[in-house]
Design a protein around this nucleic acid. Structure first.
Length: 293
DNA sequence: AAGCTTTGACCTATA
DNA sequence: TTATAGGTCAAAGCT
């Protein structure tokens, strides 16, 4: 299950810091979700600490293209006019249930330091044949506000473009897998992440603590020839100082992603459906789309 | 030499 | 107060 909680921060930034970027890098291509892997590891995002953020950011669509969750079929994810996810599931008009996950609203109690936030959990649903294109399928959100998200939107590794230095590792009780603790190497950046890795090397959970207070580095370690990520997009990634995102790739059959888009909904988007350059979409995504037609 | 990982010890929060 | 768990420190070693 994947759970992403977002609060007072831009969706893009959170995604960027969540380590779920989809780079055309080795197996990370397509967010690291090769078909066979999709079935085994089930992602889970979770956020736990959403301190209010006064930072206002533009939410460019190109950013969305980089994001794991909105990648590929992103042109159908967010309404250019409302800022809301166009998944009908988000506004409760669609009943498609083809997505491996569906979002479940989780209203969390607000506290003194966090604004009202809503969490959506995307659970990995049993695969079944559906008539609806997987990447666009959404589940009714109506009262439930559930929506499904394609599994390929989530990366299985933690290459998020930032520099991280490991500062510790610990076997925790609540998990049989060891946790590795990382700090952002950027000067004065307090962002941290905790990566839980299974014995087979698979990342089972990633927890981000604290947002980056700097843009994503322009020159991050990338395979030569990889130019799919625009520097302008990276430059826009100015960070939310305090967000916590957890990404859990569970071995179980259920995955979930939860996030709060209260902030997201306030954003205006530069792009609309038609503005997405088809040529920029990743091949696999296009392939999936064709299959869905 | 710099930066990273490893790993046991230490610190802190909680029950 | 003590035990336990989770998180962090920091020295040593590696690349």
């Amino acid at each position: 299950p994947f759970t992403i909680t977002m609060s007072s921060t831009s969706f893009t930034d959170l995604l960027a810091s969540s380590g779920v970027d989809c780079y055309e890098e080795d197996e990370d291509f397509l967010c690291g979700f090769s078909p066979e892997r999709t079935g085994s590891g089930l992602p889970k995002f979770k956020t736990a600490q959403p301190p209010p953020l006064p930072i206002s950011q533009s939410f460019a669509f190109s950013d969305l293209l980089d994001s794991p969750l909105l990648l590929s079929s992103s042109h159908s994810l967010i309404s250019p006019t409302t800022g809301a996810f166009p998944f009908q599931g988000f506004n409760g008009t669609n009943n498609h249930s083809d997505f491996p996950w569906h979002l479940q609203p989780q209203t969390q109690p607000s506290n003194a330091s966090s604004a009202l936030q809503e969490t959506y959990v995307v659970q990995d649903l049993p695969k079944k044949k559906d008539p609806v294109p997987r990447e666009f399928a959404a589940q009714s959100l109506g009262s439930d506000r559930q929506v499904k998200v394609p599994s390929y939107m989530v990366s299985r590794n933690s290459n998020d473009g930032y520099g991280w230095r490991k500062y510790g590792q610990k076997q925790v009780k609540k998990s049989e897998n060891p946790r590795s603790y990382f700090k952002c190497t950027y000067p004065n950046c307090v962002s941290k992440k905790i990566v839980e890795t299974a014995s087979d090397g698979q990342i089972t959970e990633i927890i981000y603590k604290g947002g980056h207070n700097h843009p994503k580095p322009e020159f991050t370690r990338r395979p030569s020839g990889s130019t799919s990520i625009s520097s302008s997009a990276n430059a826009r990634r100015v960070f939310n100082p305090s967000s916590v995102v957890s990404e859990t790739h569970d071995q179980s059959e259920s995955s979930s992603i939860s996030f709060d888009y209260s902030d997201l909904e306030q954003k205006s988007f530069k792009s609309e459906y038609g503005e997405i350059d088809e040529e920029e979409e990743q091949p696999e995504i296009k392939r999936l789309k064709r299959e869905g037609e």
